[in-house]
Design a protein around this nucleic acid. Structure first.
Lengths: 215, 215
DNA sequence: ATCACGAATATCGTTGACAACTTTCAGTCC
DNA sequence: GGACTGAAAGTTGTCAACGATATTCGTGAT
């Protein structure tokens, strides 16, 4: 009665904590994740850790070798490129959908983000810019109403979060990609599905090019 | 040393059995899957059943409500359409990739499948036709070498297996879709990525149309 | 008759212990 | 010294029992 602890749901919580820990690079790629250790560190039972690891394995953030435990999955540049290639297909799909069925509210949100992105670019505030980009993706995704595509995109984003994050802070990257984002927004605001598709592909093609040049 | 029993791996096995049972409609959509029952039926511990259910939930075959158990996920027509929409993007991607990097061996396999599909169509052997189509997809996917897209496609196929299966047996469906499959094969054999992309989209657009007409 | 309440049941979530598997390392033989 | 053997340690996989949560059903009051 004192604290209502609405569905503490230990394992779901643990999944979240572990995911963040991996994405924040607290665990290095290829590092082994030993159930007993995690159990102690997070104060949960080994069974809860186990289900959390199962979840993360299915999200593609870790690898689980039978009888040999789990380790953080290392994403190579080639894999990162593959992920963006798939994102290009899926994001262009949701961009089309959103352009087709844009509501007035979503349009208003997009116009606001448009201004914010331009401001952040001019001010050179990379953190703010990165944050707004994520918000933009989220708005476009949700507005599409395409649950299937959204689910897969979320999974892909989780997998390549670190790569994605690093890219934002490459010198000159923001001033290059901001116009691309604005182009996507404008195409959607114009309710032009083909233009939205094209602008999205152009933007992600740019990301692929940068990824390839990285290594 | 008598029997080497290479890694019996109860839970992995159970995952497989349960997946097949769901896809074969032994469990109806929305049917509750009670851990204790499954445990008895398959002669495994409840913990093993539990991890199997976790796996299937992450594959999207079942839903798990906190503290309320698991049930077979019912895929609505709208969801089935969404799945095919995503497949259209991903399969056209792998078709392009395969057309670009086709090996002589894969080309031979494709030519053989081409003949088999035409034969099955003429003989009206729907089961054989359905089987060959699955083989065809598998060959095109694997030849693409695009692990990321393949992984997502496998997940989607598992989810919509039943819908997909039913479609094959609609009257006249085979004679309509066989030429579409042949067109895909020919485009890939011609090493023409854009044609392969187009043929794939045409084929899946046909499936979407049939799905929509279903209900 | 209907609704609210609470006990009883059904089922899931968690725990600790045990079994099986893998890896490591010391000892032995060549 | 190097390769093989086998024991020991480390780790995961499985199990049965316990505790927590949701659902059902009966009872009584309005």
């Amino acid at each position: 009665m004192t604290t209502i602890e609405q569905g503490a749901d230990v394992s779901a919580d643990l999944t979240h904590q572990l995911r963040e820990a991996i994405q924040d690079a607290e665990f290095a790629p290829h590092q082994r994740l030993i159930e007993a250790d995690l159990s102690e560190r997070f104060g949960a039972s080994r069974a809860s850790v186990r289900t959390a690891l199962l979840n993360l394995a299915n999200e593609g953030l870790i690898e689980r070798l039978p009888n040999r435990g789990a380790r953080v999955r290392a994403i190579t540049v080639a894999e990162a490129v593959e992920i963006v290639e798939v994102r290009m297909e899926l994001e262009s799909l949701v961009a089309r959908k959103t352009a087709q069925s844009l509501t007035a509210e979503d349009a208003a949100v997009l116009r606001e983000l448009r201004g914010g992105i331009l401001d952040a670019m001019h001010e050179g505030s990379l953190i703010q810019y990165s944050r707004l980009n994520q918000q933009l993706d989220r708005v476009i995704w949700d507005a599409s109403g395409h649950a299937t595509a959204i689910g897969l995109l979320e999974r892909l984003r989780a997998q390549s979060a670190r790569h994605q994050f690093r890219l934002s802070f490459l010198p000159g990257r923001a001033t290059l990609s901001a116009p691309e984002h604005v182009a996507i927004i404008d195409a959607i605001l114009a309710r032009d599905p083909e233009a939205a598709d094209h602008a999205t592909r152009v933007h992600l093609a740019g990301i692929i090019a940068v990824l390839r040049s990285q290594e």
